[in-house]
Design a binder for these strands. Structure first.
Lengths: 106, 106
DNA sequence: CCGATAGATCAACGGTCCTTGATGGGAGGT
DNA sequence: ACCTCCCATCAAGGACCGTTGATCTATCGG
């Protein structure tokens, strides 16, 4: 029973971070594990400032973490925000299920 | 193991629909069950055309369904898109978990 | 030190999204 | 038929978002 109301702002931030093709592609790449920005720009053939922008959005939403190693910045998935996501979706799912069964006619 | 790549567009649509405070508030209200637009505008003190716009976004994303009864349009949660959401989040979660365990040092 | 590299940040532009008020259309009531 | 109610749709305006190229910072190698 997530008390969603006070955390609506956070949910908006989370879903907004996920509502972009480039950012979803970044997350998809990060599923393979930690990667630095230069690897990502190379693999995705995207301008560096563009990815930097999107990585910041993902980081601000708590979806990724960054780690510095010399000149390189490594990004990786963060399970923190993802668990919040799961709660949000779960709560929706339960409500949708109960609504469906209540509507069941036959 | 969701084949996410081809359905990125759909994921973007889904997450975009969820990335708005008004729309999340609508979903929250619909958790209590089917409601008509006039009930929603009344409860949320929002302009009718505004809610109509947002309900259309939610409907286009597959998150809600509508049903006509006389003069009234009733909206309710649809479990269809929500299950897709669940898959997307699940896939992210697994990747984040495995990344975390791979990074575990001590 | 100096140059080169990795990446963040900034300003400007174009596009998309949300809001608002007005209009239109369908369904009932009389 | 007419009027009323419920809702969708439209056009206009403003706000926000993503892209791009340039600039700035920090780190490493010589």
């Amino acid at each position: 029973m997530a008390a969603v109301a006070p955390s609506i702002k956070k949910a908006v931030t989370l879903f907004h971070a996920l509502s972009d093709e480039t950012r979803l592609a970044l997350l998809e790449r990060l599923k393979d594990g930690e990667q630095c920005v230069c690897e990502l720009t190379d693999a995705m053939k995207a301008a560096q400032s563009r990815l930097s922008f999107h990585l910041k959005v993902l980081k601000d939403a708590g979806l990724v973490e960054d780690r510095r190693d010399g000149r390189w910045m490594y990004y990786s998935l963060s399970s923190q925000a993802i668990e919040e996501l799961e709660d949000l979706v779960d709560s929706l799912k339960k409500a949708a299920k109960s609504a469906a069964s209540a509507r069941c006619c036959c």
